[in-house]
Simulated scan of single mutants.
Amino acid sequence: MTFVKITEQPSLYNDLENKSVHELLIDINNEDKKVADAVEKAIPAIEKLVSEIVPRMKKGGRIFYIGAGTSGRLGVLDASEIPPTFGMPPTYVIGLIAGGDHALRNPVEGAEDDMAAGWRDLEAHGANELDTVIGIAASGTTPYVVGGLREARRRGILTAAISSNPDSPIAQEAEIAIEMIVGPEFITGSSRMKSGTGQKMICNMITTATMIKMGRVKGNKMVNMQLSNAKLVDRGTRMIVEELGLDYEEAKRLLLLHGSVKKAVDAYRGGE
């Protein structure tokens, strides 16, 4: 059976340079509307993955995203948002991109074509059987991701793949295949568009659901967020006001004393 890349098929639109700005934006938006439906179809696989991640993470396991280009950048982005949002150390969710951090802003020639580099990068972080490796590649064929998943799985590490083509090579290498079939891109082959949007949505779902199950959210609030700027201090203070019925200044004093909403509330209720 021949592997067909839907992501490379011709756009449903043509003569883009002759369209008005309004027409271009409407057409892009119409294509973007398809992404959420494609992600919805992948929820059973996402649910299975999160259910496997949580018990591993409770034992000290980590999530590794591996990808190249846009896919790699989105993994790094999601990982970088975990400490400020949930107050988890940056060692719990790690994004690895082919070519290293330099590739976040610049193309690195040939980096994604190195089949052995994915595992080398994982090995440098001491990846082990408690960890989870999630390969991201819209095409599903990126050698950096294929090789990393293959070696991780061979060593007994939980593996998952996020791709936009059915039955892709990375899906075949992973235990859990998350296939988000968004169809041809608005600009033919530009997988930073619908595929990238869907990848971001799925990464959000994976880590947000995992962090909630790890106890990093109370009710619907980010009670463990880092207090890294005035906006977040104000947000945390208002959470404590709402939770404990204190005045604003006392709530702020407690927050700054204890360093997080959760710690402040627990200390107050514990009879500070």
Rank of each mutant, 00 (worst) to 15 (best):
N18K: 13
A98F: 02
G198S: 08
N224C: 08
T85L: 02
M201Y: 00
F3I: 03
K59L: 15
D247F: 08
I202G: 04
S11K: 04
G126L: 08
F86Q: 01
A68F: 00
D266C: 11
M225Q: 13
S80G: 13
A117G: 11
Y13Q: 03
L255P: 06
T91I: 12
A79R: 00
M211I: 10
A127R: 11
P55D: 11
I206Y: 03
S164Y: 02
E47W: 12
I181Q: 10
A124I: 07
M211K: 07
N128A: 07
D266Y: 09
Y268R: 00
V21G: 04
N165M: 05
I46F: 14
E243R: 06
R192F: 04
K231T: 01
V133A: 08
L74M: 06
M180E: 04
A174K: 03
R253Q: 15
Q199P: 09
G198W: 03
A45D: 09
R269W: 09
N29L: 11
L130Q: 15
K262S: 04
G236V: 06
G69E: 02
P84S: 07
G100Y: 01
D247T: 02
I46A: 13
K262D: 10
K33I: 07
M205E: 12
S190Q: 08
R73H: 10
V241Y: 11
S80M: 08
L96P: 01
L256V: 10
S228W: 10
E52D: 13
S168N: 11
V233H: 05
A161H: 05
K194C: 04
V241F: 11
L244K: 07
D266T: 12
K218A: 14
A171P: 03
K200T: 01
M205V: 01
S190R: 08
K200I: 06
R238A: 10
G110Q: 10
T188A: 04
I202T: 02
M225E: 09
T141C: 12
A264G: 06
L24Y: 01
N30K: 09
A152W: 08
D113T: 11
E17C: 06
S164T: 03
T2G: 05
L158Y: 01
D101T: 14
D32L: 00
S163N: 07
M1H: 15
D234E: 15
G67S: 08
D234Y: 07
L257Q: 15
A111I: 04
H125F: 12
L74C: 00
E17G: 12
D78P: 05
I136E: 03
K19Y: 02
Q172E: 14
K194N: 03
I43Q: 14
T207M: 11
G100D: 12
P10C: 06
V223M: 06
M1R: 15
H102L: 15
R192V: 00
T188S: 05
P107V: 06
E81R: 11
I6S: 13
A45P: 00
E47V: 15
K221R: 15
